[in-house]
Write a protein that binds this DNA or RNA. Structure first.
Lengths: 190, 190
DNA sequence: TTGCCATTATACCAATCGGTATATAAACTG
DNA sequence: CAGTTTATATACCGATTGGTATAATGGCAA
């Protein structure tokens, strides 16, 4: 099999379990069954390895989020579709998603944070656009579009954390997707 | 001044900026203007230093959260008081709070995560109790008390992240406290 | 003064860190 | 076949890591 992909996968699992800083290059190459120069041949540094990981695992999510408004006209429909998208992605790429989630809250001066920040900012920008386009439907948001985006993704992430501790199998059922969006739109009452 | 407290404060600022793993003992003692054996005299290890930090900075928050239901009868009043408490604490101990927030999402096998997990679990337990006691008011929650607790704290944390990037001065105004709890209870509509 | 105990520093440890110079093996190219 | 490129390993680098053995302070009690 392709050594490059093996390295990426092993690195992801170790980054997820131990974090970027705490994972040594030595551990990665041992797990991958290769040696250091091989890793430095494909990725010019430990940071380069992380960047490649973000690029190759993250791009499909950004692409999918991008395409949602092109397929759906209703604002609420877009929200449901986004929730479904994120939960589906999180189930498929669980280690990657929770690793990124952790980086989001990690110190801004951190090397790993800087590598992850653009990917996360792109997500927020796309979701903020979704609220921006709903201006006629939601009324005047007083520039709180980004706050809504953060709150929306935050609510989804809370749910995913809950399901992560039980099982993620049921998470994708329509009633659960509905519950997340409903909580964001209408709160826990009703 | 007390060297012990200087070490704790310097460690916190470095942990916040760079993360626990990426911060070396050498950096801490240099910033504190002392040498390594002094640090190892007060805290027997780097991990011991972190544990002392969590204990001494975190205990007041747990204590305050504990006392909320003793002072207030109304469920919604308790929620407002909790939101005010967290925002006030976050403003007073900003570096500590965001450091803990980052640890919450960090890998479970991580040494630093294990040290912070009990503190975070205690918080969730106390908030879960608040929802449990509101059973008569909220109706049957079908065992979703903990999910509500996670969602409630999650919503508050999202708001604090938003205010952290602007200014935290206005965060404590009554209308903002109200907005957070209202979003949790009634959603972004209404 | 004497002795004890709390506090701090000098100087060091083995282990590990990210990264590389160099050599080699295999595969493609002419 | 020879020459080049791609892919991999051995063996090493200086720097830094968390941690400590040892000794010197300083103040306080007897």
């Amino acid at each position: 099999m392709d050594n490059r992909k093996i390295i990426l996968q092993c690195a992801l699992e170790l980054f997820y379990k131990r974090g970027y800083d705490a994972t040594s290059v030595q551990e990665i190459v041992e797990k991958a069954g290769i040696t250091k120069p091989t890793m430095y041949y494909y990725f010019k540094s430990k940071l380069g390895l992380l960047e490649a990981l973000i690029q190759e695992k993250g791009e499909p999510l950004l692409q999918a989020v991008c395409e949602v408004p092109m397929r759906l006209e209703s604002f609420e429909g877009q929200l449901y579709e986004l929730a479904r998208l994120y939960m589906s992605f999180c189930r498929r790429e669980r280690h990657f998603y929770f690793f990124m989630l952790g980086q989001m809250y990690s110190p801004p001066e951190n090397e790993a944070h800087k590598a992850t920040a653009p990917f996360i900012r792109k997500q927020y920008a796309l979701i903020t656009d979704t609220f921006q386009r709903a201006e006629g439907y939601l009324g005047n948001m007083n520039g709180r579009q980004e706050q809504f985006a953060i709150g929306f993704l935050g609510t989804i992430n809370c749910y995913m954390m809950v399901y992560n501790e039980k099982s993620m199998e049921n998470m994708l059922r329509d009633e659960n997707i509905h519950a997340v969006v409903h909580q964001f739109l209408h709160g826990i009452y009703s």
